[in-house]
Design a binder for these strands. Structure first.
Lengths: 343, 343
DNA sequence: AATCAGGATGTAAAGGTTTACATCGGATCG
DNA sequence: CGATCCGATGTAAACCTTTACATCCTGATT
C-alpha cells in the first residue's frame, strides 16, 4: 500500500493551520508574509502550529493568486559547456538575492526545445526569461512586439541588435582583436581561425575583430578560416585541415574547441606550443589545468549571469528605464599554449 | 509607460476563449486535454480562437486543480562538472517521454541550498525529486518516514543503503577494482590514489574496491591514499604530494581530478604516461580530447539519468513495486594516459 | 410513436492562497 | 466621558483551471 502522501493524500493547508491555532487563514498568511502585522503571541502560536503540522504553503495557489511565480527561466544552448555553468552560478546568486529561483533549461541548440521552454513564460510558469543563445523563440515575438524593451526577456552573451532585447555581454570584437594581436606579437603570420556557427552573432563579431587585427598587420590574406560549432569534436576535424595548410597558430572561438585543436596537433605528431600555438576563448575553469595551460580570453562569466538577472529584475519591477545593453570587461590570459613560432 | 503585459496586464483566460468561441470553459478545456471528446467543428473553432487570442493556459491554476506540477526536480552537487551534464541530458529525455519537465538545481555541495530545493517538493512545486549528491535534505526525512520507498524521491549515482531511497548507480567497487587492476597489469606497484570526500559513499566504495584489488596483489601496504573533493584544483595539490613520494601511477576518482593530477605531473617536470600513469573516473566527453587521452571508467551517464527518471515516474504512478536499486554497467576505457612504468 | 442510448456540451464546485475591506476593542485625547 | 484612532484580526472574494454531474439532442430500437 503505497503511502505517497505528498502525492495522493490531502496535504495540510493553511486552513488546517488556522483551525488548529484558532485564528483565521488571513492571520496565518500574514504570519508568513508580513510578520510585523501580527501580534507577538499570536505569531508564535501560529509558527508553532506550522511546525508541528509540517505545513508548507502550496506554491501553485500562491502563484495563481499573486500572479508571481518568483522564478526566472534561464536557457542555455549546451549545459555540458562549463562556460555556461559559471554563468548559471552567477545568475543563481543574483536571483537568490532578489528573491527569485532559477530554472535552468538545456536547449541543446534545438529550436524546438527552445520553444518548449519559451512557453513557460507565456504560461506564467516563470516571471521572466534569460536566454544565452542567439535565437529568440518565435512564440515570444508577439510579446516582444507589444512590450519592446519592457518585456521580461534578457539575453546573455549573444548580443544581437536586431532582436530588440536587453543584453549583457563583452566586447567580442575587441577581445578577439586582442587575442589575435597576441599571436601576431609572438611572431605568427600564418594563422588559422576556427569559428562558431556563422549564424552566431558572437562568432561573427569575433571574426570581424580578428580580421580587423589581421588587416592592421597586413596579413589578412594569409588567414585561414574554418567553421565549427564550439565543440571539441568539430574543432578537431577543422584543426586537422588547417594543420595540413601549415599554419603556425590556431585561434579558436571557445576553449572546448582549443582543446579539440590541441588534440589534433598531437595527432599530427606536432607539439603545442612548440610547433603550433593555440588560443582559446572563455577561460573555463579547466583551462589552466590543461596541458599546456590554455591562452585564452577570460570572460566575466559569473558577472554576466549576475547582471543579466539584475537587468531582468529591474524590468520585472517596472524600473523607469533599465539599461538596454551592458558591456563587461574581458581579459587576455596568457598561458602555455602559445609561444613564438618555430623559426 | 512600460507595457509589461505578461506582468501587469490581464492575461487572456480560458473564459475569454470560451466567450469568444461561444462555448463553455469546459469545452475549451476539453479541446486542450481530450480533443476526442469534442465535436470536430467546435474543436476547430475553439482552436482558431485560441490562436488568435494567443491563449496559453495558466500553469499555476492547472497545477492547483490537478495536484500535479508535471515537473521533476533534479539537484546536482556541481553543475560545472560535465559528468552531471550528461546525466541531466538523459534525465530530460526520459522526463519528456513521460510528460514531465526537469528543473535543474545546482546545490554546490551546500546543505543549505539542498534544503532550499527540497522545499520545492514539500510545496508541491514539483512532483518528485532526483538528487545526485549523497545527502538527503533533513526536511524530507518526515516524508520518508511516512512513505518509505514510495516517497517520490530517487537518488542517482551515490547509492547509500542507509538512506532508504531508491537509487540508480554502477557497481563502484567493482569498477574501481578494474581500474586498479589495469595499472597493476601494466606493472605498476607504487600507486597513489586520490579520493573524493570520505563522506561520499561512492568514494568509499571506490576506495574499497581499489584496496581489495591491491590486497589481491599483495601491494596494499605500498598504497598511498590522499583525499580531495573531485575538483581539479584539490587533486592538483594532492598529486604534488604523492609525486614527491615516488609513485609511478595516480588513480583519481574523477576525470576532473585526473586532469588536475596530470597538470601536477607536468609541473613536476615529469611526463604522463612516460613517468607517471594517470587513471580517471567517469569518462566525461573531454576525456578523449585531453592530452594525453584519459584512461578512465566510463559510466553510462545518460542512462543513469534516464533510469532515475523512469524509477521516479513509476513511483509517481503508484506502480506496484518498483525496483529499489538499479545497477548499470560500467566499462574501462584505456587511452593514452596509462603505460607501463619506466623500468 | 415512445423509449433509450449515447455523444456533445454546459453548470458549478473545488483546489489553497492572498488581500481589500470590515470589524472589534482598547488606548489616547480633549 | 465621549470621540477618535489605530493595531489586531476576521470575512470573503478573486486568481484560473479541471471535472463530476447534469442536461440536451439526435438517431436508433422496439
Amino acid at each position: 500500500m503505497p503511502c505517497n502522501s505528498i502525492h495522493d493524500g490531502k496535504m495540510t493547508t493553511i486552513i488546517d493551520v488556522a483551525a488548529t491555532a484558532g485564528v483565521s487563514t488571513a492571520t496565518v498568511s500574514r504570519v508568513l508574509s508580513r510578520p510585523d502585522r501580527v501580534a507577538e503571541p499570536t505569531r508564535l502560536r501560529v509558527l508553532e502550529v506550522i511546525r508541528t503540522l509540517g505545513y508548507a504553503p502550496n506554491v501553485a495557489a500562491r502563484t495563481l493568486r499573486t500572479l508571481r511565480a518568483a522564478k526566472i527561466l534561464l536557457t542555455v544552448p549546451d549545459i555540458s559547456n562549463p562556460f555556461f555553468a559559471s554563468v548559471i552560478r552567477g545568475a543563481e546568486e543574483a536571483a537568490r538575492d532578489a528573491g527569485y529561483a532559477v530554472v535552468v533549461g538545456d536547449t541543446r541548440h534545438d529550436p524546438e526545445i527552445e520553444e518548449q521552454y519559451a512557453v513557460m513564460l507565456s504560461r506564467r510558469e516563470v516571471d521572466g526569461l534569460i536566454f544565452l543563445g542567439h535565437r529568440l523563440p518565435d512564440s515570444l515575438q508577439p510579446l516582444l512586439d507589444r512590450c519592446g524593451y519592457s518585456a521580461p526577456i534578457v539575453n546573455g552573451c549573444e548580443y544581437s541588435p536586431g532582436i530588440g532585447v536587453p543584453s549583457v555581454h563583452i566586447d567580442n570584437a575587441a577581445a578577439s582583436g586582442e587575442a589575435f594581436e597576441h599571436l601576431v606579437a609572438l611572431g605568427h603570420r600564418d594563422i588559422g581561425i576556427i569559428t562558431g556557427p556563422p549564424i552566431s552573432p558572437i562568432s561573427r563579431d569575433r571574426l570581424t575583430g580578428a580580421i580587423a587585427a589581421a588587416e592592421r598587420h597586413g596579413i589578412a590574406d594569409r588567414l585561414r578560416v574554418r567553421i565549427a560549432d564550439y565543440s571539441a569534436g568539430t574543432a578537431f576535424e577543422q584543426a586537422r585541415i588547417l594543420l595540413a595548410e601549415k599554419v603556425s597558430a590556431l585561434y579558436c572561438f571557445s576553449d572546448e574547441m582549443a582543446i579539440g585543436a590541441i588534440s589534433a596537433v598531437a595527432e599530427a605528431g606536432l607539439s603545442c606550443p612548440g610547433d603550433v600555438s593555440v588560443v582559446g576563448f572563455d577561460d573555463v575553469p579547466l583551462a589552466r589545468y590543461f596541458q599546456p595551460g590554455l591562452t585564452t580570453i577570460a570572460q566575466p562569466k559569473a558577472m554576466i549571469g549576475r547582471r543579466a538577472v539584475e537587468l531582468l529584475v529591474q524590468i520585472l519591477r517596472d524600473a523607469p528605464s533599465p539599461p538596454r545593453q551592458v558591456t563587461l570587461k574581458h581579459m587576455l590570459v596568457v598561458r602555455g599554449s602559445t609561444a613564438p613560432p618555430r623559426t
